[in-house]
């Protein structure tokens, strides 16, 4: 009886494994694009930030203080009814930062970023800045977005 020739092995169908992987990849990417803002700013409050050419502050863990066009104030995602609440919250967060790092000298050294809407009045920003300073923040920056076409 003649021996049957062994059938050549079919290449494994990698498509069935790649398809879900590509799906997950595109979903992850879409989520990343949509959440990029809140991922890097530690807040989900949307504010129309003014544009600038000069950028000084690199990405780091900061305390975001947002002021919306309507005049609402937020520290991280918490709405603040008045300036005194901002001072109290900043004080609390700066103390927490120093305790987490086991270094009392770090109190006030966590960067506080004021995210003001570009249409608000300068007086409002000064009031918030004053409240932040009263809360013991020693490193304060104004949030800006890099202007397109600049270095």
């Amino acid at each position: 009886m003649p021996r049957e020739k062994p059938k050549p092995k079919e290449p494994p169908d990698i498509g069935q494994y790649l398809f879900p992987m590509a799906g997950v990849m595109i979903l992850t990417l879409a989520t990343l694009i949509m959440d990029a803002q809140s991922l890097f700013t530690n807040t989900s409050i949307k504010v129309d930030i003014p544009k600038a050419n000069v950028i000084e502050v690199e990405l780091e863990q900061s305390i975001p203080v947002s002021v919306t066009k309507e005049g609402k104030m937020y520290v991280q995602d918490y709405e603040m009814p008045d300036l005194q609440s901002i001072t109290a919250k900043i004080k609390e967060l700066q103390e927490k930062y120093a305790m987490e790092n086991n270094d009392p000298e770090l109190k006030g050294q966590q960067l506080t970023v004021i995210r003001g809407d570009k249409a608000i009045q300068w007086g409002k920003v000064l009031e918030v800045l004053d409240a932040v300073k009263k809360g013991g923040a020693k490193r304060v920056a104004l949030a800006v977005v890099k202007r397109k076409g600049s270095g």
């Binding site: 700013t41 800045l129 923040a137 020693k138 490193r139 890099k146």
Partner: peptide, 20 residues
């Protein structure tokens, strides 16, 4: 595209008060 546009999406800052 995402990697190229990230500098224009992400907020940065201008210092108005540096460390002590």
């Amino acid at each position: 595209m995402f990697m190229l546009t990230i500098p224009f999406i992400v907020e940065s800052g201008i210092f108005i008060s540096r460390s002590l």
